[in-house]
Amino acid sequence: MDALITAVGLQKYFGSFHVLQDIDFAIAKGEVVCIIGPSGSGKSTFLRCINQLERIDAGCVAVDGEIIGYHRDGRMLYPLSEREIARQRQAVGMVFQRFHLFPHKTVLQNIVEGPVGVQKRPRNDCIGEARTLLKRVGLAQKAQAYPGELSGGQQQRVAIARALAMKPKAMLFDEPTSALDPELVGEVLGVMKELAASGTTMIVVTHELGFCREVADRVLFMDAGRIVDSGTPAEILENPRNPRVKNFISAVL
């Protein structure tokens, strides 16, 4: 199976703090990978490296065969321009913990901002697609609302639609339900399950072990900047071999 996203020997420091230590990772097209682990273990930083919101210090990440952030010449990697990086970012959609919808734009404007403003696709086509996406996340009647008028769960579903509107090759979810009231978590996970079922390539950083069990093809456990263990949900969640994983799972449950 060809890998859609690969990371090789990825290193990342915040000052002297070694956040990501020698991460090797690959995800195939259509695969759903959940990353779990204690806070501060580098899960979110890893996602942000894939989307180039963080610069990597060593190693490399490739999306669909293209090294991100750098132009390769032999052994040498030269930094790409902001414009090139912006183009590469379109290949992966990102959903943030705190939604980050644009509060001064309506739901519909939030969704078409990328395809129309950035990808320069015809406005009317994009509005049509946006309405289809809104229907898909169950918010067809909220097109003209402002984000401030929506609940957290509704905002996060719009954020998912906004990322999907770019037609990304993969979707990254950075703790998408952690900022939600408990009764709103289900509606967001529901949308994500539907996405997974439709064959979307997804990397999900989450604390929702139930979601991992149900949806993930593979679960990674990260701790202190390393991928400590990985396997099927059954292997990681039901019968963890690694003692650190075992501790974490029993603490969460």
């Binding site: 989307n51 912006a86 959609g93 950035v118």
Partner: peptide, 8 residues
């Protein structure tokens, strides 16, 4: 970051 993530 949200703007960057949609390719701006």
């Amino acid at each position: 970051e949200a703007g960057l993530s949609i390719g701006m």
